[in-house]
Design a protein around this nucleic acid. Structure first.
Length: 487
DNA sequence: TAGCTCGTTGGACAA
DNA sequence: TTTGTCCAACGAGCT
């Protein structure tokens, strides 16, 4: 009666329905993770993703060992590894958490039908969403393409159940069971180091300084957010120099915490707050944006590569290798954009407000296809997530759900002046500008010569000239849009 | 059915 | 300096 517990993007032991189902079968449970690209389509894990995954698996294994179990690691074809694990353990069932990306769905369906043919129990569970994509429908039975009605419909769907193992503070891993029965003999396992997830050259210092993958990191960020930032989230989240956001995105991506746990912990905090529970709404809305992204990628599986709005297939994008390279390396000459791109490179993350400005610069100022931006983010973000990344880029490019009005072109200078007025964010990530006064920090190219000299800035030498003139680029972007709207 | 309202995150310009 | 208005048209979603 041995059961394989196949972990994917749900690397945790608390509020883990697949784990609970495995234990409920009664026999020994073999927890397994398979490093494989075969469910990722043309989106194999990027470098930052692998860096995080290495540590997250380490954390999961430690948690399992603390209750007398362990994590079996394999690499290669998922189907072949599952087959061999069935051989080695005599497993009669496999349970896992569902995924919603097109390639993963396709692969999982094949695995499921093959297992069933062989008489092996194959059971999938919802381990990562509040509402699975097919449970939320418009009045006419279709998927939503606009966020606000989606949000309203979700709230109508009823209260979100408490996480398994509640009340909060119950840190026992398996809910009621609290132990995972081990097999008499463990199957073969790779060593974590042999999965080749670690970088070959040490580019990860900034990531190590910034992040703590795994359960302890979840606890650290959740506590920090609960103890302050949540209550000013709606205003502070826009200022990149402040840690006003939850910084939970990578933890949620890997399923080190369930959205349900986050939802209820913050709701509980808000309930004790004099301003009442609605004070947490702006943040909960963001959690539902994550749900919306999964809803969209499930119902429109072509969107990671193609625009949701078909007329954008005719958009006159430019080919500009030098521009792309300048953007990627944070050398566009626009300090806010460059600070964001360098924060991304150094820490594997970028503040959301800056993501919008940087992404807008690529697609509107440079007219470079949003797919190239999505690929760069995919490789460099520790929270790289196909659903969220797709939604974000299509939104910025104006070709996705909730399309932005055509005239919404972010001005990198005024965004900087609004949200980084004192220039602290720019100074942190673009040190060669750090001695510029606030007045010029967001637009060194307009600063008087003596100011630049005094700050030790030599344009074109210590810091680049702007690679495009934003005012001209804006006009050009609007003209490009007019070609596909017929305007 | 047809009509109505609205759309996460903006910017430029006039007054 | 601040505030209000306008900037396409469309299609989603509701009534």
């Amino acid at each position: 009666m041995c059961t394989l517990l196949w972990f994917r993007n749900d690397l945790r032991l608390t509020d883990q329905p697949a784990l609970l189902a495995a234990v409920a079968r009664g026999g020994p449970v073999v927890p397994v993770y398979i490093a494989s690209d075969d469910g990722e389509g043309d989106w194999p894990p990027g470098s930052a993703t692998k860096w995080w995954l290495h540590r997250s698996l380490q954390s999961l294994d430690a948690q399992l060992q603390s209750i007398g179990s362990r994590l079996i690691l394999r690499r290669g074809s998922t189907q072949a590894e599952l087959d061999s694990l069935i051989e080695e353990t005599g497993a009669t069932g496999i349970v896992w958490g569902r995924r919603y990306e097109p390639a993963a769905i396709h692969r999982d369906q094949q695995i499921k039908s093959r297992l069933k043919q062989r008489g092996i129990l194959a059971e999938s569970h919802n381990t990562s969403l509040l509402w699975e994509p097919w449970t939320i429908q418009t009045g006419t039975g279709g998927p939503y393409k606009v966020f606000t009605p989606f949000w309203r419909k979700c709230l109508q769907a009823g209260a979100i159940s408490r996480p398994i193992g509640d009340p909060v503070g119950d840190t026992q891993p398996v809910g009621a069971t609290r132990t995972i029965p081990s097999p008499g003999r463990w199957p073969r396992s790779e060593r974590l180091g042999d999965l080749d997830l670690e970088p070959r050259i040490a580019w990860d210092a900034g990531l190590r300084e910034t992040w703590l993958p795994g359960r302890d990191g979840v606890e650290r960020e959740l506590c920090r957010f609960e103890n302050g930032p949540w209550s000013d989230y709606s205003s502070d989240r826009d200022f990149p120099e402040i840690s006003g956001t939850s910084r939970l995105s990578p933890h949620l991506h890997f399923g080190e915490v369930s959205p349900r746990t986050v939802w209820h912990r913050l709701l509980d905090v808000a309930q004790r707050d004099p301003r009442g529970v609605t004070a947490i709404d702006p943040y909960l809305r963001q959690l539902v944006w994550r749900e919306f992204a999964f809803h969209l990628v499930y119902h429109f599986p072509h969107t990671p590569r193609e625009p949701l709005r078909p007329e954008f297939a005719r958009f006159p994008w430019r080919s500009d290798d030098a521009g792309l390279r300048a953007w990627q390396t944070g050398r566009t000459g626009y300090p806010l954009v460059d600070a964001g791109m360098r924060e991304l490179w150094r820490t594997g993350w970028m503040h959301n407000r800056v993501r919008m400005a940087a992404a807008s610069f690529l697609v509107k100022d440079l007219l470079i296809p949003w797919q190239l931006g999505a690929e760069w983010f995919w490789d460099t973000l520790v929270d790289a997530d196909l659903a969220n990344n797709t939604l974000g880029w299509q939104w910025t490019a104006g070709c996705g759900a909730d399309a932005a009005p055509y005239f919404r072109v972010f001005n990198p200078v005024s965004q900087g002046e609004k949200f980084d007025a004192a220039g602290n964010y720019v100074r942190r990530h673009v040190p060669e500008l750090s001695r510029l006064p606030d007045r010029w920090i967001q637009q060194p190219f307009c600063a008087p010569r003596e100011v630049l000299a005094q700050a030790g800035v030599e344009l074109g030498v210590t810091y680049p000239h702007p690679i495009v003139d934003h005012a001209e680029a804006r006009v050009r972007a609007l003209a490009a849009l007019a070609t596909i709207t017929g305007g």
